[in-house]
């Protein structure tokens, strides 16, 4: 790739005519030797990248394939990705016998409740911290920032202790409350930053219309903060659906309350030879998030990127 060739390409594709509005004649000129040579490094790179990506998704492909194989087939031809005849009964075994239907229900309940609680508490706290000055505001901000990085391994013992005292250990409610109480400081800060940027004329107009504090927040402010809400919902959803440490500790004595991740490790601990059942259970557990990710890719990636930009 040399310097002198750059302008030629620019004049041909960009500059004068928009690339999309290229005529058929220009298109037929594309396959010239210099053009191919210039593109060759990128195609090589793309080929390498494609190889890497296949390696990247291979574990998932292997998992789905294994979930449709019979026991014999897994041990006989473990590498092939296409099962002889799909053994759907593996899914029945995982869903009913291993209890993954129940685990799925628990996970869905816990995730939804936690997401709603976290959005509400982050939005309300972010709103007043971002828009109002009051005594104690600085103290609250300071406490939030200090505890920003507290890891679960550090707080888990007192969390279990306090849940036990409140009678919330070994219950889904307790799990929801504990999950929505830990961390999520970034959500508050994102809301605070966003609400601060909303002009106050808007608020004054709403007050003139006779709206109170509560109405302004729920009817005017919260709907405006949709992008922040999307980010908070997605990150909380992922964190809760994938949580392991807390649900593990909260379900020691109540196996029927296990979430998918805890159920998975318990299942493997009890049936270490049932590979196809394990693969079916793992597929059931991962499918909802993967489908959601593929449908809402844009929001996922913007949400993650939004976290680093701030």
């Amino acid at each position: 790739m040399t310097i002198t060739r750059e302008p030629t390409e620019a004049t041909r594709t960009g500059m004068l005519r928009r690339p999309r509005a290229r005529t058929d004649q220009a298109r037929s000129n594309r396959w010239t030797w210099p053009w191919i040579l210039r593109r060759l490094p990128w195609w090589t790179a793309a080929l390498l990248m494609a190889g890497g990506c296949l390696l990247w998704v291979y574990p998932f492909a292997w998992m789905v394939a294994a979930s449709l194989k019979s026991q014999l087939e897994i041990f006989g031809s473990g590498l092939s990705l296409i099962p002889d005849s799909p053994a759907w009964e593996n899914y029945g075994r995982a869903w009913n016998d291993a209890g993954f239907g129940q685990y799925m229900l628990n996970t869905v309940i816990v995730t939804f409740a936690t997401v709603i609680l976290v959005v509400l508490r982050c939005a309300t706290a972010g709103y007043v911290l971002g828009r109002y000055s009051f005594r104690g505001r600085k103290l609250i901000m300071a406490i939030l920032l200090i505890t920003l990085v507290a890891p679960t391994g550090y707080t888990i013992i007192p969390v279990v202790d306090i849940s036990m005292k409140l009678g919330l250990l070994n219950s889904l409610t307790g799990m929801v409350v504990a999950l929505s109480g830990s961390a999520h400081v970034v959500g508050i800060l994102l809301y605070a930053g966003y609400f601060r940027s909303i002009p106050k004329e808007l608020q004054e107009a709403a007050i003139l219309d006779g709206a109170g504090f509560f109405t302004i927040f729920f009817k005017v402010m919260l709907p405006m903060a949709r992008p922040v809400t999307a980010t908070v919902v997605l990150t909380t959803f992922l964190a809760t659906w994938n949580a392991y440490f807390l649900p593990l500790v909260f379900t020691f004595s109540r196996p029927e309350l296990r979430t998918l991740s805890v159920g998975m490790t318990a299942f493997v601990g009890e049936n270490s030879t049932d590979w196809s059942g394990m693969a079916a259970a793992a597929t059931i557990s991962l499918l909802p998030v993967v489908v959601l990710f593929i449908l809402m890719q844009r929001q996922f990636i913007d949400g993650i990127a939004g976290a680093v930009k701030s």
């Binding site: 990506c53 998932f60 392991y244 998918l260 394990m278 793992a282 991962l286």
Partner: peptide, 27 residues
């Protein structure tokens, strides 16, 4: 100039959304 870059990005990002504990078991 990179062909199919959105597809590559999706493939590389996929493991991030999956449950760590379950990935650990599969591994």
């Amino acid at each position: 100039k990179m062909p199919m870059r959105t597809l590559f990005r999706t493939a590389l990002f996929l493991p991030v959304v999956t449950t760590t504990a379950i990935v650990g078991v599969v591994m």
